[in-house]
């Protein structure tokens, strides 16, 4: 393969110009998808983390089972099951619906574990101080514990969010026209790898600032611990 062949296969401006509209629509879908699944996962995570503060074994054991199951299942398997499996039980789910359910279950379990660790990192004296001034359990959680919990596990939350955004590419298997799906479409009609390359670059440009931010936070936490 010559240099010219190489650039033609991966970096062809002509191809890029042709594929641009379809890639852009894919990027928009990926952004929309992320804007849906990250809050959804966080919501699930907060619910699970709050449930984890309940001492009763009637909550504890089912919760543990839930989290274990959805952290063990590969997200791709989960997604395919929701999309292609549930219809056999008479439950038709749209691609967006399947992605929403799959990510809520999978991502929620991960965010839940991170937030639970955060909540447990807040000393008991904080809640006692809050309760001693008349705050209810819920108020103490909302104003005293959760803000500190989130701050204590912020790098983990960001890191998980990064993974979640990357993971939205699995929506391509249920034919949701996000960035990877569109790039594959463009690649198959142009017989050229440039669209895939462009998608990779788009992911990188999107996520690299987050990666940088994460590194800085992690370094700062390390420095703070010293």
């Amino acid at each position: 393969m010559t240099w010219a062949d190489f650039t033609l296969a991966f970096f062809s401006l002509d191809i890029l110009r042709q594929a641009w509209p379809i890639l852009l629509s894919g990027l928009v879908q990926t952004l929309l998808l992320s804007a849906m699944v990250v809050p959804l996962g966080l919501l699930g995570g907060v619910l699970l983390a709050l449930l984890s503060t309940v001492r009763s074994p009637w909550v504890r054991w089912p919760l543990m089972a839930w989290v274990d199951v959805f952290r063990s299942l590969p997200p791709l398997v989960l997604l395919v099951f929701v999309y292609a499996g549930l219809p056999f039980a008479g439950l038709e789910v749209s691609p967006w619906g399947a992605v929403a359910i799959g990510f809520f279950l999978n991502t929620g379990a991960y965010y839940g574990e991170i937030l639970r660790a955060g909540i447990e990192s807040v000393p008991a004296g904080q809640v006692e101080a809050a309760r001693s001034t008349g705050l209810s359990r819920g108020q103490a959680m909302a104003w005293v514990v959760l803000p500190q919990a989130v701050r204590n596990v912020l790098p983990d939350l960001i890191s998980n969010t990064l993974e979640v955004v990357k993971l939205t590419s699995i929506a391509s298997v249920v034919a949701l026209p996000e960035l990877l799906f569109q790039a594959r479409q463009a690649q198959s009609v142009t017989f050229n790898a440039t669209p895939i390359m462009a998608a990779a670059v788009a992911y990188f440009v999107l996520l690299w600032p987050v990666v940088r931010l994460l590194s800085r936070l992690e370094n700062r936490q390390l420095a703070g611990r010293r």
Binding site: G125, Q126, E128, A129, S132, T133, V144, Q148
Partner: peptide, 15 residues
């Protein structure tokens, strides 16, 4: 509890 103030050994201020 509003009528009972409490002060702890380790302060327990919200950081």
């Amino acid at each position: 509890r509003q009528r009972i103030g409490m002060v702890f050994q380790s302060f327990n201020l919200y950081p």
